[in-house]
Simulated assay, not measured.
Amino acid sequence: MSPRLAKALINGFLIGGAVIALFPLLWMVSASFMQPGEASALPPPLWSAHATMRNYQELFLRAGMGRYLLNSLLVSTAITVLSLVFNLMAGYAFAKLRFAGRDRLFKVLLGMLIIPAQVAMLPLFLMLKYMGLVNSYGGVIVPAMATAFGTFLVRQYARGIPDELMEAARIDGASELRIFVRIVMPLLKPIMVTLAIFTFLTAWNDFMWPLIVLTGQEHYTLPLGLASLSREHAQDSELMMAGSVITVLPVLVLFLALQRYYLEGLLLGSVKG
């Protein structure tokens, strides 16, 4: 087989795979502009003959999708900011500070990575109930403020920072907080972007935990709002597609815009670790 033919076959397979992966998303967008019942026709049309914005108007004017969107933005942003603060400090401490039991504590932290999250949901729910955080934004935000994976990711990256930088700053009389803010944090920017994107996407798409801890619709995030909408409008495929577009589009645009920094942080972290 000639190199040109092999290259053409590989590119053909890649293009075919991309089309198969993107087709459901593109049809979802197309169906969101269709008239009621149009997407249920057999065979279903690829695009609407009479496109309309009615489905999106219905979502925001009557279905409360605007409130769900604001809830998701509030919860995901708060989780991302708090997660960066706690995971960066914990990861740096495990990587560069010496304290009693550091290595043993880190091994325990690593062990938490293999425990399914569902195992801890019941005790976590009871703890939040005693704290009065059930059916509140805090009930969703507090458990996600720090994660074993986030701490591990930062720790592996921070290990590549030369110890001489911190020692020189200590000799000059800089406090540990100043060293962390002025020296360490600028060097952690690639992994900060990676962790921020990963955390925001995870919080935005989370369905199980908000479903458990949130009982009132006024606190629902977009995934919960879309699920409740499906119970009320199970036969309205076009409206459901519009809701799916609103849920998927923001994080898809965010990831596509920042994917270079996301991958760069992951690759640098793996090399430095």
Rank of each mutant, 00 (worst) to 15 (best):
S40A: 14
V81N: 08
L266Q: 14
M127S: 00
L105M: 14
M1C: 02
M89Y: 08
L195Y: 13
I20Y: 05
R260I: 07
P44K: 08
F23V: 12
F13W: 11
A49N: 10
F60T: 02
L110H: 04
R170H: 10
V271Q: 10
R4I: 06
R178G: 07
L201H: 10
H219D: 01
A242R: 03
P44I: 10
L42G: 02
K96H: 15
F60R: 00
A90I: 04
F207M: 08
P186I: 11
G101W: 12
T151P: 06
M127W: 04
Y262M: 12
A203D: 12
R260G: 07
I179H: 09
I10C: 05
A95Q: 10
F13G: 05
T202M: 14
S48N: 07
P43L: 03
P44S: 08
V75F: 06
T147Q: 08
E238F: 04
S76L: 05
G139D: 09
A242V: 10
L128W: 01
V119E: 01
A168V: 14
G273T: 07
R54S: 10
P44G: 05
L5C: 00
V119L: 07
F86K: 01
M1Q: 02
Y68S: 01
A242F: 10
E58F: 01
L5T: 11
A169R: 08
S230C: 01
L109T: 10
A227Q: 11
S48H: 09
F33S: 06
L110I: 14
P36Q: 09
P123C: 04
N55S: 10
K107T: 11
Q35R: 13
A41Q: 13
F94E: 08
N135I: 06
P210W: 06
K129C: 00
S237P: 00
Q156Y: 03
A93L: 03
H233D: 01
G12V: 04
G243C: 06
V251S: 14
M127L: 12
V140R: 02
P43M: 02
P143K: 02
V245A: 14
P223T: 08
S48I: 08
P250L: 05
K96G: 13
T77K: 12
F94A: 06
D172F: 06
I141D: 12
L201V: 15
L14S: 13
A39P: 03
L187K: 14
T215K: 13
E58L: 11
F33M: 09
P123N: 01
F125H: 09
R104D: 03
F86N: 03
Q259V: 15
L82W: 07
T221L: 01
L201Q: 14
A8L: 07
S2F: 00
A242I: 11
L97R: 14
Q259T: 13
F94W: 04
L61P: 00
L211V: 00
R260L: 07
S32T: 05
I15H: 02
S2R: 04
M127N: 05
S30R: 02
A146C: 10
I79G: 08
L9C: 06
E264D: 15
G139C: 04
Q217N: 07
M65T: 02
G17H: 12
S32G: 09
L214F: 04
L70K: 00
I79V: 15
H233N: 08
L249W: 11
G173H: 04
P3R: 09
A227H: 05
E232C: 01
A93I: 05
P250F: 04
L82H: 05
L97D: 07
